[in-house]
Design a protein around this nucleic acid. Structure first.
Length: 533
RNA sequence: GUCCUAGUAGCUCAGCUGGAUAGAGCACCGCCCUUCUAAGGCGGGAGUCGGGAGUUCGAAUCUCUCCUGGGACACCA
């Protein structure tokens, strides 16, 4: 609708010989519906340009605005144009919702652009924890939203199954194994202390007894931990299209290829017998090491190769979701892409802020080292999948979050998920097994509460688009919460099932539509709308 | 010290592509179940939008600066 209004204004402006593009015009939904369904500030912006009073421009302009969708246009305040939608149009949309069902809100904003979305990508050196859960919620929700908006989305997980931390994993497992065999070795500080490492070691002991050969530790560890990760993600409702292994990048020669390319392009130099990359030429704060003086690669090199590979797979856009502790990484990654003659602007890195864990208001320090963590699975068990997913989705990415365990374990109604879910359950309960009779014209749907609901329902598509453009799933949760509020308020004031058969029929259709939009909204963030509570 | 990110009601947070009287939830104080689910509704109190300056017809929103919290600044990943 916003786009349509923009066109209408552009056309009207033309008759006044003012040339503007649709994207120059701002349409917004006023906070208060007294000021119209939509409004534009265009006249105030034009005031200086035209050397005219904004209200005068506005009054002139509205003479040229005619459109079936718009019931009336008013000039208010210092020169706002306030648009009121035609009620017939909202009723037509209601019909549209009932017909479209699960597809209501789907649109073609993305024009089939190929987007690669990489998220979580936790190392296979331990169990996924609460931070990963936030990343998983975000990535999965964003993928759903982009898909819904007509993007061709590939969900990808990058497995760091090579390098230092994997050698470390191998050592850690071996130590645990030797412990089981009776050896009193202690785990070094930089080893992996998680319970899952002990589990792997004991599995190995069960299978091989005292005779495990040196090559089994890494192999078993990787397999076990990766399976566990996949399983946890699955339980979390998150799936992937592509799993890319770092080891494979080496085996396919992509790492060497990339290294040679960087050398050929003359972006490297030797210093202290290490190979440096001149990332500072392209905005990084200093140059980075690619190959260490001991001959091993740093993490950066295969990661550059990985991103190069993603570019070469023909994506229009790459999105990485990183934890806040990796933000320093963005500059060097983008710089590297530029060196490979790839367009760094296609790469978007979203940073998610830390999740702090609280217990009775006190912060609990988490550490992979000590094995003291709250896993993604623990969360689902304690809080419930839907409530967890909703909880993460409702926060904007760049706000740091506190997760209070004592609160969460109460399955507290402080989680707005219950409020939204309750609206859906209520609707479901009212409708029961009554059938929906589609109709072209509605005659009894009127009154402020009903109009507010119908207008809110209409906004859904714009909301989804806004959420996609900003890569911000929380816009959807905010919206669905507001919709639930309007519904609850309507429910408390007015009845759906009455003796008036016609009104009952029409109101059932109305709340059915509300149910559809709640369900669709929740589905985008990976949450099921409960039919009963 | 440099970079990123945040600072909005007692608490947790929306709002930030500049707009009309700054919003929710929780907490607190009142009402509302003989009526489709009270996990709900209605009303109330509660704010120097961290401080200061600037840009503008108009700033919580943009710019600069300072203060505070979190994170990052490896030949770790």
């Amino acid at each position: 609708m916003k786009d349509l209004l923009k066109e209408i204004i552009v056309k009207a402006l033309l008759t006044m010989t003012i040339v503007k593009k649709p994207e120059d015009i701002i349409i917004e939904v006023p906070k208060c519906r007294d000021n119209g369904d939509y409004s534009s500030n265009i006249c105030m912006q034009l005031a200086a340009e035209c050397k005219m009073n904004p209200r005068d421009i506005a009054y002139k302009l509205i003479e040229f605005i005619t459109d079936d969708h718009v019931a009336k246009v008013c000039v208010k305040g210092p020169g706002f144009l306030n648009f009121y939608l035609n009620k017939q149009f909202l009723l037509k949309n209601l019909h549209n919702i009932l017909i479209s069902g699960d597809n209501y809100g789907r649109n073609s904003l993305g024009l089939g652009q190929k987007v690669n979305l990489e998220y979580v990508s936790g190392n296979p050196t331990g169990t996924l924890h609460i931070g990963h859960a936030r990343g998983a919620s975000y990535g999965d929700s964003l993928a759903n939203i982009l898909k819904f908006c007509g993007y061709d989305v590939t969900r990808e997980y990058y497995i760091n199954d090579s390098g230092n931390q994997i050698d470390n994993l191998e050592k850690s497992i071996k130590i645990r194994y030797l412990n089981i065999c009776g050896d009193r070795l202690t785990m070094p500080n930089d080893g992996y202390h998680g319970k899952e490492i002990i589990k792997v070691a004991s599995d190995i002991f069960t299978k091989y007894g005292y005779d495990a050969s040196d090559d089994v530790f890494k192999k078993w560890g990787l397999k076990y931990l990766l399976d566990e990760i996949k399983n946890d993600l699955n339980n979390y409702g998150v799936s992937y299209d592509v799993w890319t292994s770092e080891k494979d990048l080496y085996q396919n020669g992509l790492v060497d290829q990339t290294l040679n390319l960087l050398i050929e392009n003359k972006y490297t130099y030797k210093k202290d017998s290490a190979l440096f990359l001149k990332t500072s030429d392209f905005g990084d704060s200093k140059d980075r090491v690619l190959v260490k003086s001991d001959g091993n690669n740093t993490y950066l090199l295969p990661d550059i190769a990985y991103h190069r590979d993603k570019y070469n797979r023909g994506f229009d856009r790459l999105v990485d979701v990183f934890g806040a502790d990796h933000h320093g990484y963005i500059a060097r990654l983008k710089a590297s892409m530029t060196m490979l003659n790839l367009d760094a602007n296609k790469l978007d890195v979203k940073i998610l802020q830390m999740v702090r864990l609280l217990q009775d208001g006190e912060e609990i320090k988490l550490s992979k080292r000590t094995g003291k963590t709250l896993t993604m699975n623990d969360l689902v068990t304690e809080v419930g999948l839907d409530a967890t997913r909703y909880f993460f989705a409702m926060r904007s990415l760049d706000s740091q979050m506190d997760f209070d365990l004592s609160l969460a374990t109460k399955k507290s109604n402080e989680n707005p998920f219950y409020y939204v879910g309750y609206a859906h359950a209520r609707i479901n309960s009212i409708i029961g097994d009554k059938s929906i009779v589609l109709k072209d014209d509605y005659v009894t749907l009127e009154g402020e509460k009903i109009l507010n609901i119908m207008f809110k329902l209409y906004q859904f598509e714009d909301v989804v688009k806004l959420s996609a453009n900003n890569m911000a799933p929380h816009i959807v949760t905010n919206y669905v919460y507001e919709l639930a509020t309007l519904f609850h308020s309507f429910y408390a004031k007015e009845k759906v099932l009455t003796d008036d058969l016609l009104a009952t029929k029409e109101r059932i259709n109305l709340i059915k539509a509300v149910g559809i939009v709640i369900k669709n909204s929740l589905r985008l963030i990976g949450v099921k709308a409960p039919n009963k509570m």
